[in-house]
C-alpha cells in the first residue's frame, strides 16, 4: 500500500473583501494525483504560491480536501474518526523554527509529543534520547531552545516529530529561513533518519540542491503537478523548469551551457563529480 495516495485532490477557499463578503473562490490545488511509496524520499518543488504548502498540509489533515480524496497509509483524511491516526502517521515540520518549539528545555520539548500520545515515562525518555541522537542534538538535551541557532532549532523540531514515531515525515520548506550551514545540518539530519529509521520523507523546498538524492520529484505550478520524475529526468528539462519559475543546480546549468556551446555532454548532470568525469571522457 502507498504511504500517500491522492485522487483528483482539490482544495478551494473563499476569497473575501474587506467586509468579509465572499467575492469568489480560489483553487489552491486543482486535481492532484500523487503516489508516495513507503520508505521513499519525495521532493515537491514549486514557486511561491504554486500550491506546494497547501498540498503538504493535506498530508496530515491540517487541511482536508474540498474535492477528491487523499489517503495517508490507507486512511482517508476526511474521515473524522481517522484524524488522530492520520496525524500520528504523518508528522510535520514547518518553515519557521521559532514557531514550533514550546518547551523551555530541549529534551522537554522533544518529549511533549510522545507524552501527549500517552507513552509510558520510561519509553518517553528512551525516545527523546534516541531521536535527539539521530539528529545530532543529544549534547544539547539540557539546553534552552532560545540559545540555539536556526539549524539546531529546526533539528530539535524534527526530533520532536520523530519521537512520536511517525511512518512519514513532511517537511514544509524546513531550510528556507536558514543560512548555508543550517541548511546543510538539517538536510544531513533528514538523510540520516531515512537510513536509520526507514521513514518516508516528503520534502517541500525551492532549493534544488536539496532534492538531488530524492527518489522522485514533483513540480507544482498553479495548483497542478506539471512535472514528475527522478531528479535526473527533471533537471534535464532546464528550459521547462524556467517556465515554472524554478532553476536548476549550478552544476547542471554549467553542463547545459557547455552542451549549448557544442560539447557532447549527457543531459541532467547533477553532481560536480559527474560533470568532471564527463568532461575528462571528452578530452
Amino acid at each position: 500500500m502507498e504511504m500517500i495516495h491522492s485522487e483528483k485532490l482539490v482544495y478551494e477557499y473563499d476569497k473575501r473583501d474587506e467586509e468579509g463578503n465572499v467575492i469568489g473562490t480560489n483553487r489552491a490545488i486543482d486535481g492532484v494525483d500523487i503516489d508516495v511509496a513507503p520508505g521513499s524520499f519525495v521532493a515537491v518543488l514549486g514557486h511561491n504560491g504554486s500550491g506546494k504548502s497547501t498540498l503538504a498540509k493535506h498530508m496530515n489533515a491540517i487541511l482536508v480536501p474540498t474535492g477528491g480524496t487523499i489517503w495517508v497509509d490507507g486512511k482517508d483524511t476526511k474521515d473524522p474518526a481517522e484524524l488522530w491516526n492520520v496525524r500520528q502517521t504523518a508528522g510535520m515540520v514547518f518553515q519557521n523554527p521559532d514557531n514550533q518549539i514550546i518547551g523551555t528545555v530541549v529534551e522537554e520539548d522533544v518529549g511533549f509529543g510522545p507524552e501527549n500520545l500517552g507513552v509510558p515515562t520510561d519509553e518517553i525518555w528512551k525516545r527523546v534520547e534516541d531521536s535527539l541522537r539521530s539528529v545530532g542534538m543529544l549534547e544539547y538535551r539540557k539546553a534552552s531552545p532560545n540559545k540555539l541557532s536556526g539549524g539546531q532549532k529546526q533539528r530539535v523540531a524534527i526530533a520532536g516529530v520523530i519521537a512520536m514515531e511517525p511512518k512519514c515525515i513532511v517537511l514544509d520548506e524546513p531550510t528556507a529561513m536558514l543560512d548555508p550551514n543550517g541548511r546543510r545540518e538539517v538536510i544531513q539530519a533528514v538523510e540520516k533518519l531515512r537510513e536509520e529509521k526507514n521513514v518516508t520523507v516528503i520534502l517541500i523546498t525551492h532549493y534544488m540542491e536539496e532534492v538531488i538524492d530524492a527518489d522522485q520529484v514533483f513540480v507544482m505550478d498553479d495548483g497542478h503537478i506539471v512535472m514528475h520524475g527522478t531528479p535526473r529526468e527533471i533537471f534535464s528539462r532546464v528550459d521547462e523548469l524556467k517556465v515554472y519559475r524554478m532553476d536548476v543546480p549550478q552544476v547542471t546549468m554549467l553542463a547545459e551551457e557547455l552542451r549549448k556551446r557544442g560539447l557532447d555532454l549527457p543531459r541532467g548532470i547533477l553532481r560536480r563529480e559527474e560533470l568532471v568525469e564527463a568532461l575528462c571522457r571528452l578530452r
Partner: peptide, 20 residues
Amino acid sequence: VGLAAPQVTYVMHDLKERGF
C-alpha cells in the same frame, strides 16, 4: 568558517587537478 565558493569554482578546481 562555514561558507563556500560557488559550485562552479569547485568544478574548475577539480578540472585543474585532473590536468585541464
